[in-house]
Simulated assay, not measured.
Amino acid sequence: MEKLMHLVLLVSLSELCVAENITVVYGMEGETISISCAYSPKENKWREKSWCKHVNKTECQHVVSAHRFWLQFLKKWNGNTSIADNIHTGVLTVTMKRLQKQDAGLYQCKTDFLGEARTLKKVKVEVLGAGVMETQAPEEPRALHSISSLPKDHFNAFICIITVILVAKFLTAVLIFTVASRQRSRATREGSQNLNQHQHLPLTVQENR
């Protein structure tokens, strides 16, 4: 039952990914994940970069902002979350250490300039309990996701579609196997009943004599 629930969760997340172009990041409790948000340096070099968590569909609660360009080589921390902005390569790096269940949710990388906010990418963080996936060293990042405002949407959508197709094929195979097993079991029971009837038939004839 637990494996089936995980499978249903994977299908749901894949469908969400295709529909809204949301990158899904998995992490184990207690480990570290890193997320890289790429952007165009020409368009966003002087903009303030930040990481926020959605509390509803329209409101995104601020978590941490990157240092301005003159301190871009330094990380800025808020709790277990750090952010660093490399304006030369156009990469905003968010690191979440010692993951906990409450860290799960929908986040986004965004830029702000003169009151105008732009979303670079939305990221759904899933925190899994111990034993669900193979563990790594706590401080070793499990996933480094390249997130860009540049045209990578088609690639992400393609990966999501492939995932949905593979999961659908797996579910179909499981369903076929289950139906075949039930039919085989039913045939075995019917064969046993027929055999019992043939075994009792001679006894009935002898009684009539």
Rank of each mutant, 00 (worst) to 15 (best):
N56G: 01
K42I: 11
T89D: 14
L92D: 04
I87S: 13
E43L: 15
T111W: 03
A66C: 13
V94Q: 02
E31F: 02
G79T: 10
E116Y: 12
A104D: 04
H54E: 08
Q72F: 08
K75S: 12
G115T: 10
L92K: 07
D103P: 07
A66M: 11
H88L: 14
G115Q: 06
Y39G: 04
A66W: 04
E59H: 14
H54Y: 15
E116A: 14
L106E: 06
H88F: 15
N78M: 12
I22T: 10
Q108W: 11
C52Q: 10
G30E: 06
V63T: 10
A104W: 08
Q61P: 00
H67D: 10
I87N: 05
I33S: 09
T89N: 10
F69Y: 08
E31I: 00
K76P: 02
H54Q: 07
A84F: 04
V94Y: 04
M28G: 07
I22N: 05
E48V: 07
A66K: 01
I35K: 03
F73P: 03
E116W: 11
G79S: 09
K49G: 01
E20Q: 09
I35Q: 07
Q102N: 15
S65C: 05
L114Y: 12
K49F: 10
F69A: 09
L99F: 06
C52Y: 09
H88W: 14
T32E: 10
S82D: 05
D112G: 09
Y39L: 08
A104V: 05
H88T: 13
C60D: 06
S65P: 00
K76A: 11
M28L: 15
